[in-house]
Design a protein around this nucleic acid. Structure first.
Lengths: 344, 344
DNA sequence: ATGAAAGCGCTAACAG
DNA sequence: CTGTTAGCGCTTTCAT
């Protein structure tokens, strides 16, 4: 019951041609007589031949596999992104291997180092725990070390190195969201999602946008309204809002640094009998599906994920093709989507 | 700026040993003098050597990669499952390649046929569109064809063939959920998630459980309360509930065949000013995170996903090791989790 | 404990 | 248009 190993040679023998011809047929080369082509195809079918990808990869020096490194698959934003990236890659004949880093610095370092070198041709990387310094340390390492694996970085401009960046304008977007809350007449706008970690670039930028918005709206900065979180999950948002309410300095609005935090905060508010947006208006970031079906539906910043996925794959493909191109930075559009949680 | 290709040979030369010795060191074989081992390791580090996995795979005839084939990653149930499977596989030194079938029959057929043969050693497969007949057609095909790729099937017992099954007792679970609703005194319990498709085994089984529960509770069957859906997304649940309400034959409870449908239905109910569970009690299936943070929180059937993931990988590993084992069927435990949507 | 050499299945030169 | 042949980088006998 062992799987019979059938190779090009076997097909060639059966079809009465050479391996080269079979190879040509398999790879869809043009210069093959229809007659031989048919014969070869019949033989392939009869033997149920499958090309051995390992061998092909070995020969060609590439695998056609790219990695998508994300913190966690069950964060809806990354799940949605993953689906889109896989689809975009498929159109280009690339296979995607998804790597979950768990937002761990160690795992992310491995990814950046290209620990699966020779298995993957490139990586689309959404770093969370890694700082700019970490990346620099890895990529600028020793001059004798191989040049880094072709990489496209998602989310922030974290490193001035040989990688393309696909960035969302976090500062502007956060500012827009906060200004929207201010425009509703809210005066005590909380920010949920601050992070102490030096590597938390996203958090820093969104906080900066929040701060700018306060200034522009003429609202005072209040430390008690800025709530740090450990991670960007629903549970963290729920806890953060509970802390705010318990502190006595209750807000009348909150800008949450992602939708999951907002959904957690929403749960806490409703659980405690507050109305949204009546008592507290809520805005998030990411535009995940959940926010379109929660009650109230969630106002959010919507980055163009479709565009992120497509361009990430395009950039990576280009970079894999010609190793030596200049690093490019592409700004991804976003828009504020107003829904019920801010009375839209 | 081309990546210098460094191979075993280069390391061997630098360390002043043979390739075999380097290979031994890399693979952690025992019979190596500490002295040589150190020397080799230094050389590896200096050259930044990475073993070429394609070559290793070619030689060994296996890749250490398994596929997880699921309909869509941004269905939270599958995202959660994917995370767990990836983690479990990693513990066993396996890499997971996630395949999105989009619930398309064609794509699922490819997976079952092992279209990435020689790249993946086995597959954990959650078929949705494929019928038992489809699988039989593929696997029993011709006697000359190679034996199918080691496969573990998730979800239903779809095929009496050389694959292991990891099944949730859908009938019993659906019955439990429906009986729970009946026990609340609800008389007009809707079923959301019926599917016409012959291949929709899940739907059929959950519907069967619903029917059994009605009988046991002495409730009449009412066709108008059984709502078909196209897919198992929030939007379908929302539409289904809208249809129910518009039909005039409004239910006082609904068993939704998954949590996403329930969340969609919930949205419609709240949007139209109905109270949950006051006017309509709601139960789902899957126990995804969302249901723990919705308002009201969602009563649901919780299959042990951790156990599914772990056992799927274990079964697959065993099957890959010895091709000829008897197909096994393992029942995964589930429990009813009562939350606010049924007044828990 | 280490070395030499064969060959996994494929593609890319190069012939014919 | 098709055939022959040489490796891709690694593991694995078989020697030593």
């Amino acid at each position: 019951m062992d799987r019979p190993r059938v190779g090009l040679k076997d097909v060639a023998r059966l079809a009465g041609v050479s391996v080269k011809t079979v190879s040509n047929v398999v790879n869809g080369y043009v210069h093959v007589t229809p007659a031989t082509r048919t014969r070869v195809e019949a033989a392939i079918k009869e033997l149920n031949y499958r090309p051995n990808l390992s061998a092909r990869n070995l020969r060609q020096g590439r695998t056609g596999i790219i990695a998508l490194a994300v913190p966690e698959l069950d964060i809806p934003y990354f799940a949605e992104l993953a689906r889109l990236v896989v689809a975009a890659a498929e159109e280009r004949g690339l296979t995607v291997l998804i790597d979950q880093t768990g937002a761990s610095r160690e795992r992310e370092q491995l990814v950046a180092e290209g620990f699966r070198a020779h298995l993957i041709d490139g990586v689309i990387f959404s770093p969370l725990a890694l700082s700019s310094e970490d990346l620099a340390a890895i990529w600028d390492a020793s001059p004798t070390s191989p040049s880094p694996i072709p990489t496209v970085l998602l989310g922030e401009r974290v490193y001035e190195g040989p990688a393309d960046h696909l960035v969302v304008d976090n500062v502007t977007a956060a500012k827009e969201a906060t200004l929207h809350l201010a425009a509703l007449g809210r005066r005590r706008i909380a920010a949920i999602g601050a992070q102490d970690d030096v590597a938390a670039e996203t958090s820093r930028l969104r906080l900066a946008g929040y701060r700018l918005a306060l200034e522009e709206a003429g609202l005072p900065w209040d430390d008690r309204l800025v709530v740090p979180v450990e991670a960007y999950h629903r549970a963290d948002g729920a806890r953060a809002m509970a802390r705010l309410l318990d502190s006595g300095a209750a807000p009348d609005a909150a800008f949450c640094f992602n939708d999951l935090l907002a959904l957690g905060a929403l749960r806490t508010l409703l659980e405690r009998g507050r109305s949204v947006p009546g008592d507290v208006a809520l805005a998030g970031f990411d535009d995940i599906e959940d926010g379109r079906y929660s009650t109230p539906t969630l106002t959010t910043i919507s980055p163009d994920k479709q565009s992120i996925a497509r361009q990430a794959v395009d950039l990576l493909a280009a970079r894999m093709a010609s190793r030596a191109s200049e690093p490019r930075e592409i700004r991804v559009p976003h828009r504020l989507v107003v829904r019920e949680s801010t009375g839209g």
